[in-house]
Design a protein around this nucleic acid. Sequence first.
RNA 1: GCCCCGGUAGCUCAGUUGGAUAGAGCGUCCCCCUCCUAAGGGGAAGGUCGGCGGUUCAAAUCCGCCCCGGGGCACCA
Length: 582
Amino acid sequence: MVRVKHELAAWFEEALGRLGWIALAGNLIDRPREPGHGDYSSHVALRLAKSLGQPPLALAQTIVANLPPSPWIERIDIRPPGFINLHLSFEALLSELAHMLDETHPYGHAAPGATRVLIEFVSANPNGPLHIGHGRGAAFGDTLARVLEALGSRVEREYYVNDAGRQMDILALSVWIRYCEHLCDAALDFPSAGYQGDYIRDLALELLEVEGPRFLRTQEQMPETIPPDVEEGDGRDQHIDARIALMKTTLGAKDYEGVLGFARGKMLEVIRGDLADFGVHYDRWYSERSLYEDAKVAEMIRLLEERGETYRRDGALWFRASSHGDEKDRVLMRTNGEYTYFAPDLAYHLDKMRRGYDRLINVLGSDHHGYAPRIRAGLEALGQDPKRLEVRLVQFAVLYRGGQRVQMSTRSGSFVTLRELVEEVGRDAARFFYVLRSEAQHLDFDLDLAKSHSQENPVYYVQYAHARIASLFRESTERGLKPDTGDREAWGQLQQPPERALLTTLTRYPEILEQAAGGYAPHLIAQFLREIAQAFHVYYHAVPLLIEDRALRNARLGLCLATRLILADGLSLLGVSAPSKM
RNA sequence: GCCCCGGUAGCUCAGUUGGAUAGAGCGUCCCCCUCCUAAGGGGAAGGUCGGCGGUUCAAAUCCGCCCCGGGGCACCA
């Protein structure tokens, strides 16, 4: 794959090398906004002026004089105060067009290389269905994975399943109470810290269906050893923990595990289904429990201890995180002998490091931002290079319907699930809207806009351009004007301003992909697809395509096909379909 | 209090790692289907890039302080 921008940068470096001027950090070659400033430009003369003590305009002239001849460039302008503007030759554009039409090598993609990347995203606890916040992480993570793959990385997608610990106990308790309620046909005491959502009742019914009533236990009265339930504070946790303990003794270890295992398995199934229907597929579901079973947590702790990174205080085991850039030291094992969430998670990250990836990417919700320094500190203490870990925080999404903010609250279970969103607006709109904005931005998600099949909806705008081209080809065939995009006879006539503009826009695609991958910025692709669609719609209006002149018609249809291929490619990177009819 | 993210047109947001006259979509106001999909196109109005300093030939972009919005600061996960 040829990347014009790289060619031009190398070209400039050659001239600078000849002159014995040191190459500067940063970009040598830009895309100017102003069309009159050429297809590419360089401000290198401006930046060299100071260190060389010469006026930038004179430097620009010297540099240009030392540029070897290039088939890419037909004209070079030097403009005050010292910009060098480059105008691509028409031949260069046509050569790019040929690349675009080569369907064996998608334009802008790179051949698979040696770089191995592990991207972990979503990793929501399996204690409920995914909600729209997870959806954004899913869309971002998966799109990023696709973009990195397109540029040659070997990417693995991984979901870390927090299937151990207290949350699973709360899930089991919640399901069990609903199960018993259903069997006794009576409302039981439901802890305020339990999971309130309707899906818990569904799980309880399924449990009854599969396992029968064998988990039913009756209890006349709540034992007095159970602290009273409260809405807020420590008492809330104490109450539910006591209820969990009571459930364990009441059911016995085997039946307790029966309920918990069922609920966990079902919940994972639900999540997996939600993601699959969203077009997201994982290479690995990594279980937190397996870390215990394989003694990886204990081993990690031992390693930390050997390295003198731990100490005991107040009966707990602490990690010296503050010696590695974290705000404070962190507890690994609580006074009650149980690990904190941090311990297995650090063991997990150590495991990921040892698996030999060049880069680890974690996509987390923005509420986890304080967590990254802790993991970095841990990895450093374990002798790993924390710079190999890249953490991206995805900001929250807020839904709007009818101009009103849709209220959500996890505690009461009244959140909008990813599945509901997809059912309401469709997968294409959901995925497109999610990645239309930078993940660092709070997202206002307008449900009405996402649903509307009209011009203000950017998804349809882009898809419509694709469908229009497909329609052109159908129409052409129907009229007996069989398209032959291999016919290059009249390529030289693709000189109308709108078609040159379209072609020039398309040549930016490889640069956009590179930027999106390098900056973890898939939103650039969504934005750029809109630009392509716009350039195409303008072209479509301004220039008649299905004309009598066979050669020119084929040339124009070739340009249309190139547009279609790039639109389809970009959409597929976003996980959005490219319909051929709308 | 400390930390992170954000503040750009009426609204929602881009802004190529410091470059030229700050852009797009929507909304508003004009205009365009005898014609390959009007889910489209053309045009107009709309800006103290949160504020004040600083660095630089050049700042929306880098630095400092301040204001506003969101999030985070557990022996929770």
